[in-house]
């Protein structure tokens, strides 16, 4: 069970690198789908089974389909390397590595690996999430439904050729 997490963590990181480094947008999108599915397996290992499946259905199965269809529609080609942003290229990578090191150090200090014990897996099935969602968090739930309505209207208006 435990080595499974590390296998999928490595898969996620490699696919994440592929998202950032690929020149063709379609390959980036496919790599992002791999990241999403690897993370879904990690969620499953962490006891969030409902969210793992929701991640695949909504994120990998709907949002990324939208991305892939838009890339096909706009016929996005290979990206040519540009030298417009020399500053970003020179300073970017070292700064990011410094950032990464800092945050990892902070995490290691705060949650030392040996010390943190595993909490028992709480009942995280759909029933438990449903009860929380519709009792304590019913207001954000209704607000997100309005948010989705606004997003649908906005997307239709923005993408129309003439209003």
């Amino acid at each position: 069970m435990v080595p499974l997490f590390y296998i999928f963590a490595v898969v996620a990181i490699l696919a994440g690198l592929s998202v950032v480094l690929q020149r063709t947008p379609v390959y980036s999108a496919l790599s992002l789908i791999v990241v999403l599915c690897a993370l879904a397996v990690v969620y499953l290992l962490l006891g969030a089974e409902f969210l793992a499946v929701v991640q695949v259905i909504v994120y990998a199965g709907a949002i990324m389909v939208l991305f892939v269809l838009v890339i096909m529609l706009l016929n996005a080609h290979r990206e040519e390397p540009t030298d417009r942003s020399r500053l970003a290229r020179i300073l970017g990578a070292p700064l990011l590595i410094v950032f990464l090191g800092e945050v990892l150090y902070a995490i290691w200090r705060q949650f030392p690996p040996e010390q943190t014990a595993a909490a028992p897996a709480a009942g995280a099935g759909p029933r438990a999430i449903g009860e929380l969602l519709f009792r304590n968090y019913v207001l954000p739930f209704e607000v997100t439904s309005i948010l989705i309505l606004v997003a649908v209207l906005g997307a239709v208006v923005l993408a129309k050729k003439q209003i």
Partner: peptide, 11 residues
């Protein structure tokens, strides 16, 4: 969550 798994694979 077997039913959702099948829906996920369909997606």
């Amino acid at each position: 969550v077997g039913l959702l798994f099948i829906l996920a694979v369909t997606s």
